[in-house]
Amino acid sequence: MADLQELYKAIVEGNLNVAKSITQEAMEEQIEPQVIINEHMSKAMQEIGKRFEEGKAFVPELLMSARAMKGALDIVKPHMAQSGTTSLGTVVIGTVKGDLHDIGKNLVASMLEGCGFKVVNLGSDISSDKFVAAVKEHHAQIVCLSALLTTTMHYMQKVIQALEEEGIRQQVKVMIGGAPVSEAFAHQIGADGYSENANAAVTLARTLVSA
């Protein structure tokens, strides 16, 4: 019988193979995906997130847990449609036009995906048109904008304006992140939130989709 407590432990410890193996067993035993995700996987990610916030875990550990979670989720996904379980929401993410930096954005994408969001990663140097098109195409609930440069951070406001002009601003929450931006800047440009790191981004995304 699948030991779901061991699944929890495997995700906290970032052990991909063990996480996949137990999840496979659980699917063969026809355990409800919702139960596995809500009672074990998500709680494991919350635990590693808590350790990160307390300075007891670091970015590599977060990423290993996210990788284990994603590996397990990939096994659960084919069974989700049958059981009516859906993802937490769809997120479109990208680094804004003129900026090629993408490591921070990719960390956030990876964590969001690991925590159960469907993530559409557009890459870097992304124009407002592309953000708008992706939000429409994927019916995103959240759009995440990243910038590392003080010269490109202001482009975030252009993306928000483009969403307004297209009449879809009210349908999508806008999150921003990156070295030069802040909570105050998020308010200034009309974004819905700012997060300082990948773990905080997941917490904020959860809050925004449940608001």
């Binding site: 970015v59 590599p60 490591i103 990719n106 960390l107 990876s110």
Partner: peptide, 13 residues
């Protein structure tokens, strides 16, 4: 690849 190997991406960065 950031999709498949984000940990190595981070360390390389």
């Amino acid at each position: 690849s950031p999709q498949d190997d984000i940990l190595c991406c981070f360390i390389a960065d």
